[in-house]
Design a binder for these strands. Structure first.
Lengths: 298, 298
DNA sequence: TGAAATGCCTGACTAAGGTCCGGAAATGGA
DNA sequence: TCCATTTCCGGACCTTAGTCAGGCATTTCA
């Protein structure tokens, strides 16, 4: 669906890159271990943080077994680096807090991390540094983009609903006279549920960061609605992937054409649809928020 | 010497980048372990390679204890993946070779690595892939650049001599009528050795990839000679760092000015010296290979 | 008010990774 | 020829990381 197969040379490039970066980062583990404490305990000091943390939270963040966490905390407690307290309310729970010594130890690890990161920058001049940071940012964005999954989901799920609410809020902020979903053409949930329609959600690390809906406007015409990408996830090609999934769904359902409308306050949306080979179309509805209409043959 | 201190936000950027990339690459270890063999054994299969390897070499490359390596090899031998043979000449040594089964197993690990690398590319469209690969290349180059060390060394060391030979060969290939060091103005080794001069070598992962020399032309005038960067290490700012080290050495030795000459066949060298604030100067020698002369106040 | 669920802890156990020491065979130099 | 050195091998031992079963106190729910 997305692109042709990947040439082996590119695979090799990625593997070489991974090797280099992990080798550099491996130096960090060595410097951590040089403090005479196993890695798990060091990471735990870090995760407890200045404000302390519930054990439940620590287990989730570090992916630790309850028994193992308990033992690690016991050794840190013996070393005088953490204290455990029972938070008010539920006497079954425990909360880990760093002692002043624990905070100092954590600061040492922090400084080690800083030093390693700095050692990747210090030998470079300012132009090289700027280039390195820019390239790192690019790699990071694109790796995150590659982590995004796009799939059809029920529109009444909690994440789907959260996306739709965020979408309405976004429109309300951007449209001249605000946006009220009650004023717009109604879109019953049954219209965007199979077999009549579909709803797609994009997720990054499990959290929903985009959505889009498809409804059947006529026997062979699909209509795209509710296309939204979370602000922090823009520029990762999420809208494109959502749109293509919905188009593929429409095609599989027998549609030969899809259409959509958009508002004048969203110029980037128009540019996006044009880039996806949509062409301007005659107005096909009377939605008060529709200013432009597009369509595309599948 | 190289640049002002690094803002904390940039340090944080680098740390975030390292975290993300190592987390992604950590997935590889999981997929390796899923084959039911400890990581050490898998790595060993890789390092032995198709051609086999001496145990001594394996220990050095993997940083393993002799006993531990011996045990790992024994388990791989029992699984029928490697054979050990005594190479002719020294019957104390052993050489590890992969059996056909071992080669097949190694190919499986190779495919797993390929698949992980591919999974960073497949969700992206072609433009994003190109951007990711370009950014990875940039990060890689600059990280390597940051690994380069530049230091004063004796000019008669083996690596220094190798640099000089490579430099002469380079010139011989690029100059119109070739280059013969015997025809050039002589540069006795004593002139580029403290206290009268200096010799600098740049190293990347231990191997020499660049050099430069400083001699005393007059009580307060230094002269830069033999500036060279290995072809595979160009574009990393190595010449700049060598030059600045030699300039600093000259300044510390009481020089108020440095000068140098260069050949018309090396236009990038002229651009480089101009960028480093050298200005054209009157000819100060009659070297047959000198076409342009530069100088700079320290 | 009792039963089930929750949250943490302890003890027993396992696997991986690795160190230390000594032995055996082969080699090389005096 | 003798002796020190090199190279590999094996046994004993250790730490880290992690699992599993069960226990106890507390909380929640019917």
């Amino acid at each position: 669906m997305d692109a042709p197969p990947i040439p082996p040379s590119q695979i090799q490039d990625v593997r070489r890159f991974n090797r280099l970066v992990t080798r550099r980062a491996g130096a960090l583990e060595d410097s951590y271990l040089a403090r005479g404490r196993p890695l798990g305990a060091a990471r735990l000091l870090f995760e407890i943080g200045g404000a302390g943390a519930d054990l439940r939270e620590l287990r989730a963040r570090l992916g630790l077994d309850s028994a193992y966490l308990s033992r690690l905390l016991r050794t840190l407690e013996r070393q005088g680096l953490v204290t455990l307290e029972t938070p008010p309310g539920d006497a079954r729970r425990r909360r880990a807090l760093l002692t002043p010594e624990g905070l100092a130890e954590r600061a040492v690890y922090d400084a080690l991390s800083d030093r390693l990161a700095g050692s990747m920058l210090t030998p470079l001049d300012e132009r090289q540094r700027a280039r390195l940071l820019a390239a790192m940012g690019e790699v990071e964005r694109l790796i995150r983009a590659a982590c995004v999954t796009v799939a059809l989901e029920p529109a009444d799920g909690p994440d789907a609903q959260a996306c739709l609410l965020a979408y309405y809020r976004d429109l309300d902020a951007r449209f001249e006279g605000g946006f009220d979903v009650a004023q717009a053409n109604p879109l019953p949930e049954a219209d965007i549920r199979p077999p009549r329609g579909a709803f797609a959600v994009a997720r990054l690390d499990g959290v929903a960061v985009g959505c889009g809906a498809l409804k059947r406007a006529a026997p062979e015409i699909g209509e795209i609605k509710r296309m939204w990408t979370a602000p922090q996830a823009r520029g990762l090609g999420i809208a494109r992937r959502l749109l293509r999934l919905l188009e593929a769904t429409a095609r599989a359902g027998g549609c030969t054409r899809v259409r959509l409308d958009t508002n004048r306050a969203l110029p980037e949306a128009q540019a996006f649809y044009r880039a996806e080979n949509y062409r301007p179309a005659a107005p096909f509805n009377r939605d008060p928020y529709a200013d432009f209409w597009f369509e595309k043959d599948l």
